[in-house]
Design a binder for these strands. Structure first.
Lengths: 157, 157
DNA sequence: GAATCATGTAACTTGAGTTGATACGTGATT
DNA sequence: AATCACGTATCAACTCAAGTTACATGATTC
């Protein structure tokens, strides 16, 4: 399967939304994320349904945060995306009548379950605000003004 | 992407090999794993290279264990398969010049790394012999003789 | 109220990678 | 010499995110 990059993508989008004063259109976000508007709408729709962001139609419309980043954990975002399949690995078919196969599948499933638990737990401990803080720290480190978001030739400033 | 079931499949195969007195042909294993001989050969080739199993050509040839199950951990098997990609999720493109994207990708990567570490650690603590023991326990529980491996109409006995 | 902007959504194509299937070469046994 | 079985290459099938296009709907502006 091709890689599913929706999670890091949406995290990226939320960071940008946090820095904007006006709603960002799907086209603007698409430019930031190097994709197109339809993908943005499709991907962000889950976040809207979960109340993480709001979208408005018409002139001056677009996307904006529905709550502060400090109240959004990475786990919230992952869930809002529909908790997409985490693993490329499967644990076999559980309908087999072979006891050996059941034992093999069960052993695989246990390891995957442990990994999944760790993943969710890891996401739960981090808020979007934490990521924003990391970003700002790096900006300072590079000697850049933290209010300059013209990361690519000022294209989206 | 389609799910990668090589790990549970190979575990299943190893359990069967452990119970056989003669080498198992690829065709026999294919029957046990509900696939075909070419897939078996392809999938098992990594295990042969890592010295977990041996294969012999010609009359009476086939696959057999190169070491006892107690000396094979699930991590060994996973590595022998080439440590196939674990996640369906990606952590984004790390060549981006956008610091926000880097922060988003980094946060995703951390969670994936933690999950991967847990997965490998979990695999490392279990040997194939442990799985075989689980299997035998279930056989006893069901009141079946532990030396009866005719799990499907005695087809492979 | 007409034009424009922007979301909402559907339909189709593309791309990556395991799996399934077939074929054929090579070595070992009888 | 015939047969068995592995070793390997090739090709099609299937899955699902991502890319793309198109069009309907609603909100704003003039």
């Amino acid at each position: 399967m091709r890689q599913d990059n929706r999670l890091p993508r949406v995290l990226h989008a939320l960071l940008h939304l946090n820095e904007m004063t006006n709603p960002a259109t799907s086209d603007q976000l698409a430019g930031m994320l190097n994709t197109n508007a339809a993908v943005v709408r499709r991907t962000m729709s889950g976040l809207r349904e979960q109340g993480l962001v709001t979208s408005m139609k018409g002139h001056g419309g677009g996307w904006f945060l529905a709550k502060p980043l400090s109240e959004i954990t990475l786990a919230d975002v992952y869930e809002a995306l529909g908790a997409p399949r985490l693993f490329a690995l499967g644990c076999g078919d559980d309908t087999s009548s072979c006891l050996m196969e059941q034992a093999a599948n069960s052993a695989t499933a246990k390891a995957l379950q442990a990994a999944s638990d760790t993943f969710i737990a890891s996401l739960s401990t981090v808020t979007m605000a934490d990521i924003a803080k990391d970003f700002e720290a790096k900006m300072l480190e590079l000697g850049l003004p933290t209010n300059d978001f013209s990361y690519q030739s000022g294209k989206y400033k």
